[in-house]
Design a protein around this nucleic acid. Sequence first.
DNA 1: TTGTAGGCGTTATCAA
DNA 2: TTGATAACGCCTACAA
Lengths: 337, 337
Amino acid sequence: MGAQDGRRVTSVDVAKRAGVSQSAVSRAFSRTASIAPATREKILRAAAELDYRPNRIPAIMLSGRSGMVGVVVGGLSNPFYASALEHLVCSLRDQGLQVLLVHVDDALTLDSALEQLLGYRIDAVVTALAIGSEVVAQALGTLRIPVICFNSRLTGPWISTVSSNNRAAGVTAAHLLRERGVACPAWLAGPLRNAASVARGEGFREGLGALAAGLVSLQGDDTYESGYEAVSTMLARGVRPDGMFCSNDMMACGAIDALRDRAGLCCPRDVVLLGYDNIPQGAWRAYDLTTFDQGVERLVGAACALLAEALADGAEPVSQSLVIGAELLERGSTGPV
Amino acid sequence: MGAQDGRRVTSVDVAKRAGVSQSAVSRAFSRTASIAPATREKILRAAAELDYRPNRIPAIMLSGRSGMVGVVVGGLSNPFYASALEHLVCSLRDQGLQVLLVHVDDALTLDSALEQLLGYRIDAVVTALAIGSEVVAQALGTLRIPVICFNSRLTGPWISTVSSNNRAAGVTAAHLLRERGVACPAWLAGPLRNAASVARGEGFREGLGALAAGLVSLQGDDTYESGYEAVSTMLARGVRPDGMFCSNDMMACGAIDALRDRAGLCCPRDVVLLGYDNIPQGAWRAYDLTTFDQGVERLVGAACALLAEALADGAEPVSQSLVIGAELLERGSTGPV
DNA sequence: TTGTAGGCGTTATCAA
DNA sequence: TTGATAACGCCTACAA
């Protein structure tokens, strides 16, 4: 049945079999068009017999809208981003949008990737990149389609952002350490290009008040290894903080392991420590990590809401910023209350 | 510049500005067509001025090929799959293929997801699903486009598979435990629908030889929590193996934590333990997990090779099976040599 | 409610 | 090397 000759089954084939016009077939598969139930029935039967599947491509040509959203990801090795992607894909599907996925390492890849995507007439771009923001804003701004960024500082007429309240969380982290009687705090930063990390650091410093004077600042790159390295180096220099805020959970796990390995230090007994993101591994018994939960669902939900607005018929270029409050999730690494 | 009136810039606009025919514009952007360098130059300049980007959609209509591959993923929360996806996206891009990503929870979602994808005229499907294979094979088999599966038992005229040598790895795991003098081995299985897990278990049992008689079999579902639970329950029943093979690293991490938490048991001192997948977390100091490395690059590379073959012009329905050898990666959890 | 006809933006074919 | 023209498969007026 169907395309014996290799050719794909088209609406014309179905029309022929059902003894109707091609436009009738189109109507049978349309939500809005009016068609007699009996005719529709007949057509659907013929379509099923031929194993016909409507082709969306011509509709894209006519409408100029593909129903596809370009999703640009960087570090999928961070479970937080993997989870965000998973939620995003599901939410977009529920909005009837498909995801055209691109992985990007640097600004160059980004440019060529976007070029590719644009050929497919994607309706929008969603991204959680942490590449040099200047370059990215430049590249994204010229697309003339809506762009939604996570935890970014990018701005532009087509660019909207969704962020968690990084600065406030930093303050909260500082207050928690002070409550726990921390005297010598440390801050483990993510890469400087990561706007969220910078904001967390600023909030932390602010919340520390007088304690900020003696703040030990370490630099990581958001990976477990960098957290392990940074803390190992610090310990080797004889620096021993009793409280620590890590810009993300991956580094926090590395920090905990380095403290244990290199100096026999335990959390929270010797160091009160917390991270950010609430990745599943933080909940693993070996870490039992206090952290900030960004609420991936809310974050993604907000992004999709912005997207829906930006894609609404006749919408002007939208540029909004939404801030989602991150919630402190206390576990063992900051000790009992 | 460009579409002041909101309309998108087309090749006709560029042609007008460059003072050439529309076909000339098409040629200027084509790799194969022949065109005078001067003409090409002139056209590209006009295109740049208008910010023109070729539209791939009409080409899809003409050729029937979209250059898009549907990628169906399940558990992105397993870092192994996240990593595989990352590699896959990059490799496909290098082949000039785009990724249309779909997340699927159950067979129902799969059906509707595939229906969606087919509307976009995807050229092939790549998947690492571990859903009931009957249903999936049914759904995938009727697509009439190439399907590449990871670690699956699916078969059919259009279906190819890439697997790691699960059975052989199971045997190797058993031999390692025997070398270490294990007397009471345990096996922590993944879900039954996971063909890879079943094969690993069979190989393990085979490799154990006489020891298989006393094998302790535990059931998990490939998550950390299930590993933790299964081992906790086992310990509560007073069962204390001295060697353990876990069907994947996530469960292995859970097992290690349960052994430590619930019975103060350490690896490798009290239990010689190994997993499968080589996820980054297994290398974290808290686990230091011996495991089998599937070689994501090789796995993905093989899949892409199969795909290229299946998509070659005039290719018949391809059905191949490739097996990639997994390599034992010894770390601390199986002890020093 | 139904059929006819035009067009979406390219690529491919053919003639010049 | 170029330009005109016919597809590709569907949607959407418009007419019946």
